[in-house]
Design a protein around this nucleic acid. Sequence first.
DNA 1: GATGCGTGGCC
DNA 2: TGGCCAAGCAT
Length: 323
Amino acid sequence: MLQQTRVNTVIPYFNRWMERFPDLKSLAEADEQEVLRMWEGLGYYSRARSLHKAARLVMEKYQGIIPHDSRVLECLPGVGPYTAGAIASIGYNERTTALDGNIRRIYARLFDLALPLGTKQAEQALQQLAEENLPSGNVGDYHEALMDLGSLVCVPQRPDCGICPLQRDCLAYRNGTVDTRPVILKKEAIPHYVVTAAVMLRDPDLVLICQRPAKGLLAGLWEFPGGKQEKGESLEVCLEREIMEELGARIEINAEFGVYRHAYTHFRVTLHAFLCTALDEPLAKEAQQLRWVPIASLMDYPMGKIDRQISRKLMEKGGNELS
DNA sequence: GATGCGTGGCC
DNA sequence: TGGCCAAGCAT
């Protein structure tokens, strides 16, 4: 859960998760849709599927005992170099590095590393620094201490060097390069898409939702069908085209339903949702499956943020008022 | 080796 | 508003 996610965001999810899945066995026996529902809102949903698979794998292959060896841990789905090192060092006090974003930043500043983060040379240098500076004992505490220092004091922007216990050892501080360490290569500006979605209603209170493909963005989650607006295309034409492409159906667009903005990692979207009626029976083409579900049951289906907002608005309004 | 993958907080 | 960033990993 903590991969690329702040502790304060994780805490409520972690507590709910541990209540529902108190051990590996309960997680291993759960079905994937429920796992995704428990994860909904945390993002990076492949983490949930990987964790689910890893639980099953540990139950089957390792008799329910999470391995101690970081090289073995790295073979588990969703477990890479950092997570393997964190489990081994924090969980089992094995003498292993656990190089996360915080610790990379701290070492880059302590040693005034000029190599851009993410390059092979920088990674090698950081890994070497991590190994050379690994204490002989209490490695888990060491890693947690550095991560806390990185998240509270040696933060990316405007670090609080005045209260840093490492100030006198910090080469970047001495050289006046704290603000430019670590060196981060500029990222491309992210595109902004306009997309449409159809809230297709059918008596008495059914609405059509589609399960997204098993790979890619929001994989396995449910959504209201639609897609990107093309150049020179009106929102209505866009929606009619998308529904024909995705579902092979003509629709009647009855009313605007809402406008939603959202920023993903690699793009932004403005989504226009419309209340619609199907003129043909929709078929699953790109979607894994389609389902006409009672509006009151929408919470049973894992969704991304925008589709969950649409769902909540639908549930508030109720089916009758809309059709 | 580069790219894709969510969401929320801060400025 | 938009950019930046967060206890990275898989492909």
